[in-house]
C-alpha cells in the first residue's frame, strides 16, 4: 500500500472515523481507500459487493483497467458529486455544479480525458461518462479530420480512394475549420 495514498485518504476521512471504506486497487498496484457512498457510484464496485457474499470490508477489489492517474480524476468527480448529493434536499445550485465541472475538465489534457472516458466506461459510472463524452464532443468542435484523428490517436484505415470519395461527398463540411 502506498503511503502517499494512505495519507491523502486519511485527510479526506477526518470528518468521520467510522465511515466505511472500500479498497480499490488500480492497474499499477496502488490501493485507494474510498468512502463507501463514493465508491458505490462506481457501478462495477457496487455490483461486485452486492453480488459476492464472501467479500468483507477487508476485501481489496482489483481494477486492472484503471490507472492511478485516471482513478484520481474519477474520485475527484465522484467525491464532489457526493458532496452535492449530501446537501440535499437543498440541492446544489446548478451553476455551482456546472462551475465545478467546467473547472474540473479545464485542468484535464486530451490524454487525461481519454483515459478517464475509458475508465468511466469500464467502471460504469454513467453520469461521469455522459459528462466526459460531451466534453470530448466539444473538444472536436470545428476541427479538421486530421485533428480529430490525432485527438483520438486513431489511424486512418480508409484507402486514399475511399477517403477522397468521402471527402468529395462532404466537401462543404471542411471549409472554415480551425487549423489546430
Amino acid at each position: 500500500m502506498s503511503s502517499s495514498i494512505a495519507s491523502s485518504s486519511s485527510s479526506s476521512s477526518s470528518s468521520s472515523k467510522k465511515e466505511k471504506k472500500i479498497s480499490l486497487k488500480t492497474s499499477d498496484g496502488e490501493v485507494f481507500e474510498v468512502e463507501e457512498p463514493v465508491a458505490m457510484q462506481l457501478e462495477i464496485v457496487r455490483s461486485f459487493f452486492a453480488d459476492n457474499e464472501d467479500v468483507t470490508e477487508q476485501t481489496v477489489m482489483p481494477l486492472p483497467n484503471v490507472s492511478t492517474a485516471a482513478m484520481h480524476g474519477i474520485l475527484e468527480y465522484c467525491r464532489a458529486h457526493e458532496e452535492f448529493r449530501r446537501r440535499m434536499p437543498e440541492a446544489a445550485p446548478e451553476e455551482e455544479v456546472r462551475a465545478f465541472e467546467a473547472g474540473y475538465v479545464d485542468r484535464k489534457s486530451n490524454e487525461e480525458l481519454k483515459e478517464m472516458i475509458l475508465a468511466a466506461n469500464y467502471l460504469n459510472i454513467s453520469k461521469l461518462l455522459d459528462f466526459l463524452t460531451g466534453v470530448a464532443a466539444k473538444r472536436i468542435e470545428n476541427k479538421s479530420v486530421e485533428y480529430v484523428r490525432a485527438f483520438f490517436g486513431v489511424e486512418n484505415d480508409f484507402t486514399p480512394e475511399e477517403e477522397a470519395n468521402l471527402r468529395r461527398e462532404y466537401e462543404w463540411a471542411f471549409e472554415g475549420v480551425d487549423e489546430d
Partner: peptide, 18 residues
C-alpha cells in the same frame, strides 16, 4: 453529443469505426 453537422461529418471520416 456532437452538435454541429459539419463536425459530425468530419468525425465520420476519421476511421471506419467512427
Amino acid at each position: 453529443r456532437i452538435k454541429l453537422y459539419d463536425d459530425f461529418v468530419a468525425f465520420s471520416i476519421v476511421c471506419s469505426l467512427c
